[in-house]
C-alpha cells in the first residue's frame, strides 16, 4: 500500500508540474490569458510576420507592400475593414482621417503609409472600396483602401497576424481589430488600439527613422 502511495505522490507531482509548465507556456508566465494579448506580446517581441500579399484597389492593380527583399523603407499602419460595417467602423475611419491629417501636416515627409485592407472580398468590390475611401476623404498618397488579390492570400494574411473575422449573424463581421505597424519586410513592429493612434504614429515615425539610418549605413558601406 505504501508503495502505491509513494508512486502516486510522484505521479501527482509530475502531473502538477506539467500543469504549471503548460499554464506558464500558454499564458507566457501568467501574463497573457487571452489570445489577443498573446498576439500583441508576439508583435512587441518582433516574432510576428505578415505574409507577403498582393494588394490593390481594383483587380488590375497588383502591389506588394512588403516582402523579404524590399527596400522601400516604408512603414505601414494597417487596419482591417469591411466597407458595409455600420457605426463602429465608420468611427474608425474617422481616426484614420486624423492620422492622415497628421501625416500630411508633417514638414519632412515620413515614409509612413496608411492601409485599410478589406477582408470581405465578396462584399467589397472595387466600387465599394472607392466609395469608402471617398467617404472618408482618403488621400491616396497617404492612405490607400485596398483588398488582397484573392481569398487565399487574404486568409493567409489574417492567419499570420492572428486576426479572426466572425460572421455576426446579421450580415456583418466581428473581428479583433487594431492598428498594425508593419515594416517593409513584413515584420510586425507593434499592435495598437484605435484609441491609441497617436502612439501608433509615433511608433511608425521612430521605426521609419531607424530604417532610414540602417539604409544609410549600408549605402555608405557599399560605397567604401
Amino acid at each position: 500500500m505504501t508503495d502505491a502511495l509513494i508512486n502516486t505522490t510522484c505521479v501527482c507531482a509530475v502531473l502538477a508540474g506539467a500543469f504549471v509548465f503548460a499554464v506558464f507556456e500558454q499564458t507566457s508566465g501568467l501574463e497573457n490569458w487571452t489570445f489577443e494579448s498573446q498576439r500583441r506580446e508576439q508583435a512587441r517581441a518582433g516574432r510576428m510576420w505578415a505574409s507577403p500579399v498582393t494588394l490593390g484597389e481594383s483587380s488590375d492593380v497588383r502591389w506588394l507592400p512588403w516582402s523579404k527583399d524590399a527596400n522601400s523603407g516604408r512603414i505601414y499602419i494597417v487596419d482591417f475593414i469591411y466597407t458595409s460595417c455600420p457605426g463602429l467602423c465608420e468611427g474608425l475611419g474617422a481616426q484614420f482621417r486624423l492620422m492622415q491629417r497628421e501625416l500630411q501636416r508633417q514638414v519632412e515627409t515620413m515614409p509612413v503609409s496608411l492601409l485599410s485592407v478589406s477582408f470581405d472580398l465578396a462584399g467589397d468590390t472595387p466600387e465599394q472600396l472607392a466609395a469608402y475611401s471617398q467617404r472618408h476623404g482618403a488621400d491616396a498618397s497617404v492612405w490607400r483602401v485596398v483588398r488582397p488579390a484573392d481569398q487565399r492570400e487574404a486568409d493567409r494574411l489574417l492567419r499570420t497576424l492572428g486576426i479572426v473575422a466572425l460572421e455576426d449573424g446579421t450580415g456583418g463581421f466581428v473581428h479583433n481589430s487594431a492598428l498594425h505597424l508593419i515594416d517593409q519586410y513584413g515584420q510586425v513592429r507593434g499592435i495598437y488600439d484605435y484609441g491609441n493612434w497617436q502612439a501608433a504614429l509615433e511608433g511608425a515615425g521612430l521605426q521609419a527613422r531607424e530604417t532610414a539610418r540602417a539604409i544609410d549605413e549600408s549605402y555608405r558601406e557599399t560605397r567604401q
Binding site: 508503495d3 502505491a4 502516486t8 501527482c12
Partner: peptide
C-alpha cells in the same frame, strides 16, 4: 492502482 492510490492521481 499502483500509481493511483485511492484515486488521488485521477483527481489531480
Amino acid at each position: 492502482e499502483k500509481i493511483d492510490y485511492r484515486g488521488l492521481t485521477a483527481i489531480t
